[in-house]
Write a protein that binds this DNA or RNA. Structure first.
Lengths: 173, 173
DNA sequence: AGCTACTAATTGACATGTCAATCAGCCGCG
DNA sequence: CGCGGCTGATTGACATGTCAATTAGTAGCT
C-alpha cells in the first residue's frame, strides 16, 4: 500500500492544440515582421537593425558619444556583441572609438558625420515602414490590445524568466 | 507670399509616439520570448530552435524522411540555410543524408535514432515552456486577441510586404 | 607601496543566417 | 541523340550572435 509517487502527476501542463496554434502564429508573425523591417531598412539605407539601434542611441546621446558599457546597457545588448558590432561599424566609418579621458580602460563611442547622415536618411523610411507594416495593419483596439499583451508577457517574463541567462533582448528595431 | 510646396505634405505617414512605443514593446517582447524559449530548449535538450524545427518536421514525416527541398518548404527556410544547418546536424548525428532514388540530384534527409530520441526528450519541456511563458501569461481574452492580431499582421504582411525579398520566416519555434 | 578583487572592453572559437555562385542531374525539343 | 535551360543541393564569403577566456586598468585594504 505505498503511496509514494504512484502517478507522475506532472507539474508541467502542456498547451492545447489551439493555444499552440496561436503561439506559432504569434511568434512566426513577429519574426516575419522583423525580417520585413530589417530587409527594408537594409535596402533603403544599407543599415542593419543592429546598426540602427546603435546609431539611434548615439544620435540621442549628448555630444553624439557614449561609453561603450552605457551604450550596451541602453540598447540591452551583451557587451561582446556590441564590441563585435562596433568593430564592423567602425570599418564602415559609421562610428569611431576614442580613448576615454575619465577611465583609461574605457572607450568612448562617437558617432561620425557619415554615421549621423546614414541614420538621418534611414529614420523616416524606417518609421514609415513601421507604420505601414504594423500600425496600419491593426485596428485601434487591436493596437491597444497588442500593447497590453506585450506588457503582460513582459511582466511574466520578468518574474518567471530570468532563471536562464537571457532577458529581454534586441532593442531598437 | 508664395505658397508653392510650403509644407512637404509627405506621402509617408509616421507613427505617433504612442504607436511607436507599442511597436517597440511588441517587438522587443517577442524577441525576449523567443530568446527565453531558445535558451530553455538549449539547456534542457542541447537543441537549438532550428534543430527543433527540423526534427519536428522529420518526426512527423512518413518514414521519418523527407526530401531536402520539401523540408525547406515545410519549415519555410531558405535552402542554403537548411543545407548549412543539416551539415551541422549531421555532424551531431541527429540526421543523415541519403541518396534519393527517384532523382539522383536530390537528397533524402533521414531522422536518426539519436535525433528522434533528442526530439522526444525535448518536446514536453519545450511545450510546457511555451505554456508557461506565453499561454499562462495571458488572459483567455488576451490569448484570443493575440491570435487575431497575428492574423491581421500576417494578412497585411502578405499583401503589403512580399515586395522586398523576405516573407514569413522561422517556423517551428 | 603592494596585493587582491573587481570592472571595461576586446578577443577567439564557434553557431547561425544571407546572398551569390557553382555543380550536377533532369527534361523538353530540334 | 544532344544541347540548352531549369531544378536540387551544396559551397564560399561574409554578417551577426553567444559564450568563455583574456587583457588592462581601477580601487580598496593593509
Amino acid at each position: 500500500m505505498t503511496h509514494d509517487t504512484p502517478r507522475p502527476r506532472r507539474a508541467r501542463k502542456l498547451p492545447t492544440t489551439e493555444e499552440l496554434r496561436i503561439w506559432r502564429d504569434f511568434i512566426e508573425t513577429s519574426e516575419g515582421l522583423r525580417s520585413q523591417l530589417t530587409a527594408r531598412l537594409q535596402s533603403e539605407s544599407s543599415l542593419s537593425s543592429g546598426d540602427y539601434a546603435v546609431l539611434l542611441a548615439l544620435s540621442e546621446a549628448e555630444g553624439h558619444r557614449m561609453r561603450s558599457s552605457d551604450l550596451a546597457a541602453h540598447i540591452d545588448w551583451e557587451r561582446s556583441r556590441l564590441s563585435h558590432h562596433l568593430g564592423r561599424m567602425e570599418r564602415r566609418d559609421l562610428i569611431r572609438r576614442e580613448e576615454c579621458a575619465a577611465d583609461s580602460r574605457g572607450a568612448d563611442i562617437v558617432l561620425t558625420a557619415t554615421g549621423l547622415q546614414s541614420f538621418r536618411q534611414a529614420t523616416v523610411p524606417h518609421l514609415s515602414a513601421v507604420r505601414e507594416l504594423f500600425v496600419a495593419a491593426l485596428t485601434p483596439e487591436q493596437l491597444t490590445a497588442a500593447g497590453d499583451i506585450a506588457a503582460a508577457l513582459r511582466a511574466h517574463l520578468g518574474s518567471a524568466g530570468r532563471q536562464r541567462g537571457a532577458g529581454a533582448r534586441a532593442k531598437g528595431i
